[in-house]
Structure formats: C-alpha cells, structure tokens
Nucleic acid binder design. Structure first.
Length: 486
RNA sequence: GGGUCGCUAGCUCAAUGGUAGAGCUGCGGACUUUUAAUCCGUAGGUUCGGGGUUCGAGCCCCCGGCGACCCA
C-alpha cells in the first residue's frame, strides 16, 4: 500500500495523473479482438487504436514489457511497451510505476507477437487509474468469506463471479420477457408498509419521523398486487426485494428477490403451467438448454411436464396411515413426536401435516422439479378453498433440488371468508405469534369491491438462480448481508 | 436453535505440545517476444479475540467473534 502510494505520488511528480478524468480510448478490447480474429504470427496491421483495461499479468524483459489487459466484459488483450516504441523515459516510468491491478491506457498499433498473441504495440501509454491495493493471487480462488465480504475483488479475479452476475441479469430479463409476452404489466408496490401481510414471517420494523408512524419493510407484495387486480390491472407482476427478519443460511437471506404475478381468470393449475414455462424459458435463455449442469457435474433436467404429488396422499403413503384434513390433531402430533419433529405447542393441524411432509417426503424428489398439490386450509389464509376437497385449499408448492422454489394459489377473493381468515390470524398475533398476519381493513375493502377469480404465484429469484447454477444463495446475490468484521 | 469443520504473511496453504515455513505476490537487480515469463537477491507474522492447563501452546481445555456445511 505504502509503496503504491509513493508510485501514485511519483506520477504527479512526472506531470502525469494517477486518476485522469478521461483517457482517449478509440475502441474497446473486445472490438479489437473481433476485428482481428485470425492474424498470422508476427503481423503488423498498421491500425492505430487507443484501448484501456486492467493489468492482470505483467512480464517485463528489460527493453520490452508485456502486460495482459482485461476489460470489464472479460475480454483480454496483450499490451507491448518497448524501448523503440515509447522511448526510454516512458519505458522506465512503465517499469517503475505500473502494477498488477492498475487500469492502463495504451495507444499503438494492432499487431501479433512472435508467438502469435494479438497485441497493441504501444507508441504511448497513460495511467487510467492506479490501484493502491494489491490483488490476491489470480490463480487461486479466494476463500468463501472474502468472496462475499469483498465481492469487488472476487469479481476482478474470478470469472465465474462475473458470470453469475450476468446469469442473474439474463434470468430476470427472461422472466420479464415471458410475462410481458403474455400481456402482464410490471408494477411497483410499496416496500414500506403500514401493515405487514401477504405471508407469515417476522417483519423488520422501522419508523417514519415525518409521519410519526411505525412502518414495516414488506414481507411480501401480495396484498397490493391483488388491489391492482381489483382495480382492473388483471395481469400484473413485480420483481423486487422482500425482507424477513429471520436467520440466514445457505437457502435463506434476510432480503431476497421475489417475483409475484397474478392473472385474473386463471387458477392454480394454469399458474403452475406458466411457472414451469417461465423457468424453462429462463434455463434456455441462460444455458440454451432445459438441462442445466451444476459445478459438481450433476445434470438437472428441467424439461417436459413436471410430476405432481398430493400433499396428503404423500404423507399418508409415508406413514402407512391415511391422513386427511379430518385427522385428529392429537394423532398428527403423536406422529410428529414419533418422527422426532419438534413443533411449537400452538401449531395448528395443517402445520403438523406440512412438517410431516417435509420430514418424510421431500428427500424422495430426486432432483426432478415437483409440484406439491393441495395444502391445509389453516396454514394458508389467502388461498381459496379447494373446489372439491373439504379442509384443503388450491395451493401448490414447487420444489427443485429439495428447495421450495415457488408457490401458487387460486386466490381467495371472497371478502367475507377472507375477513374470517384474517381475523383468526390477528387473534394468533394477539396471542404472541410474531409471524401472524395483521388484519388489513383496506385490503378487505378492496376485495369488497369485487376481485375476479385469480391465480397468483410467488417465485424466489435467488432460489431460481440456485436451481439453475447449483450455487449457494450468497453466491447468487452480488452483495449479500454479512456481519461486520471484528 | 443444535452439530461438524475452518480462521496462520497481501493471497492460497504447511507446521508430533519444543527455533512459525513454502509457493505466488511485494521490494532490489538482469533480460527486446513473454503467456501464471525466467534467473539472482531480499523483505514480510497481534497464528481471529480473551482466559486457562503446561517448563513450554498455532496445536490441548473454556468463553466469545466471523464463515462454510449438515440438522431442526
């Protein structure tokens, strides 16, 4: 650091800037590469260019210096700085000042070296931005903690880190394209909410000084997107952050990106199909295939129609005992106890069934994306009753690689039943359940104006990236939350 | 919340309880065709923090911090 500080200062002494406002580039590294795809060895083009990039390797041989410059898009080109090309003063300055990590401007002729490497033979060079800190060894991966703490360094040295960032963009772009093609509108709903709802989760709480008002960072956009459907925006979606005041692990982040989309006159089966097609289109957009390969070499087939299992049937099969919404609470609890599942004493029957499902069934999914169909009513206050099965609701969860990837509903639009359900939730909240929903009178008022039959889906963007790339959630998020050092 | 593993030089990693080391990086020097250049020389440490056991602790024990993985 100190030595590089001196170099920065020495530049000023030589009348040069360490951080000029501009350097006179005429083209980009990738443009030069594509313009001269196959030159013969030791060839001179006569073409003069001005390019800039970060020095990632240096090889100095006395009166001829080589440096590999890399641009932000990953394209690289060799710079050659020779005594004959730039003169003694500029060459000495190069050898004295330039370090790996610096951004450098090179002006000169596009040539190939005697080894055939496409190069720019400098007639002049400038510092574009001096790096004061050394880069880590480029050939070894950073440890995982440094990767997330100093993602900027990770991005510089690890091509895959840059690739993941681009994959994320491509995935989200694909989703937008798919939904836009179906006539969906992308809208933005409040992140700061006066009531928290739309999911069962503990919220972050904050305060508006101006309004002297307690506010919640949203745990879900659901109730606002439904208001939009009531208002006649009948196909809407939002891709944005949700916040949940809970722990972080390899599949959970306190802030995470979520897609929610709602379509009037659709039901949960229609939404399941759309969801599958969205994910398959994203896989094609990113990997040009519906088979995705993870870093461990495993191949995951996302193609075709995905299997469905009934929640209650799967639990019944696993227990060799028929479980239905009518199964007594005590019976379910004894099965949970027998399986060693610890459940809150206040847990409702539906919660016990879901716990049994997660304990016995999920691991049998063997990597194939699977829809789990028809959930208990008492854990799903925003979903409409099943059209034939009493005690169930029209809800599915999509699992990919054992992770909950998405959930879809036939939405509950009956304002009377919705009021009952939310009243029950508010009672749970009053009894101390920090995850219970609040009774949102304005949302109920919206439903009372008449909401068309609607299907809705929530899909975790970070989880989707995990499913496509096989990485942990903190690798899919560019700057995940990390606890402060020390 | 529980368990396992990890934290040592700028980076990646070594080191039976007995003088803290290597490679790369850095610094000085040589070299006009190198590709992680090479060669010669050289510097570099609060072993995550605190406490304990011991003649002696990077290593063993306890508490704490941060991270990864597994489980709930």
């Amino acid at each position: 650091m100190r030595i590089r500080r001196d170099k920065r200062d020495r530049l000023a002494g030589a009348g040069l800037e360490a951080y000029p406002v501009q350097v006179p580039i005429t083209t980009t590294i990738s443009a030069v590469r594509t313009s001269y795809p196959e030159l013969p060895i030791d060839h001179q083009t006569g073409a003069l260019v001005g390019i800039a990039g970060r020095v990632i390797f240096q090889r100095n041989t006395g009166k001829l210096c080589f440096a590999t410059l890399r641009a932000g898009d990953g394209s690289e080109i060799q710079a050659m700085v020779s005594l004959a090309g730039v003169g003694e003063a500029a060459l000495d300055l190069w050898k004295d000042i330039v370090d790996i990590g610096d951004h450098i401007f090179i002006h000169g002729e596009v040539i190939t070296s005697k080894r055939g490497e496409l190069s720019v033979l400098a007639d002049s060079w400038l510092m574009a931005a001096k790096a004061l800190r050394p880069l880590p060894v480029v050939h070894k991966p950073l440890n995982e903690e440094s990767r997330v703490r100093q993602r900027y360094v990770d991005l510089i040295v690890r091509p895959q880190a840059r690739q993941v960032a681009r994959t994320r963009v491509a995935t989200v772009a694909s989703i937008r394209k798919s939904l836009d093609a179906r006539g969906y509108l992308e809208i933005e709903t409040p992140m700061l909410q006066t009531m928290h709802g739309g999911a069962t989760a503990r919220p972050f709480v904050t305060t508006s000084n101006a309004f002297d008002l307690q506010l919640f960072l949203r745990i879900a956009p659901e109730l606002f997107l439904k208001r939009a459907v009531v208002g006649g925006l009948e196909r809407v979606y939002e891709i944005n952050r949700n916040f949940r005041n809970e722990g972080a692990d390899s599949t959970h982040s306190p802030e995470f990106a979520m897609l929610e989309f709602y379509e009037a006159y659709a039901d949960y089966r229609v939404m399941a199909t759309i969801t599958r097609e969205l994910i398959q289109a994203a896989a094609r957009a990113v990997f040009d295939s519906e088979q995705v390969t993870h870093p461990d070499g495993s191949v995951h087939d996302l193609s075709g129609v995905w299997p469905e299992v009934s929640l209650y049937e799967a639990v019944s099969t696993a227990l060799s005992f028929e479980v239905t919404p009518m199964t007594p609470h005590d019976k379910l609890r004894s099965y949970c106890d027998a399986a060693g599942i610890s459940v809150e004493p206040t847990a409702v029957s539906g919660k016990l069934v879901e716990e049994l499902f997660e304990h016995y069934v999920i691991e049998s999914f063997d990597g194939r994306p699977t829809f789990v169909m028809d959930f208990p009513v008492d854990t799903s206050p925003l979903v409409r009753d099943h059209r034939t099965d009493i005690g169930k609701v029209e809800k599915w969860d999509l699992y990919i690689n054992g992770n909950e990837q998405a959930t879809g509903y036939s939405e509950l639009v009956d304002p009377v039943i919705q009021r009952q359900r939310l009243t029950e939730q508010a009672a749970l909240g009053a009894r101390g359940d920090a995850e219970a929903m609040q009774l949102d009178e304005d949302f109920l008022r919206a439903l009372e104006h008449g909401m068309p039959p609607t299907g809705g889906v929530g899909l975790g963007i970070d989880r989707l990236l995990m499913a496509l790339t096989g990485l942990g959630i903190r690798e899919t998020i560019l700057f995940p939350l990390v606890k402060p050092e020390r």
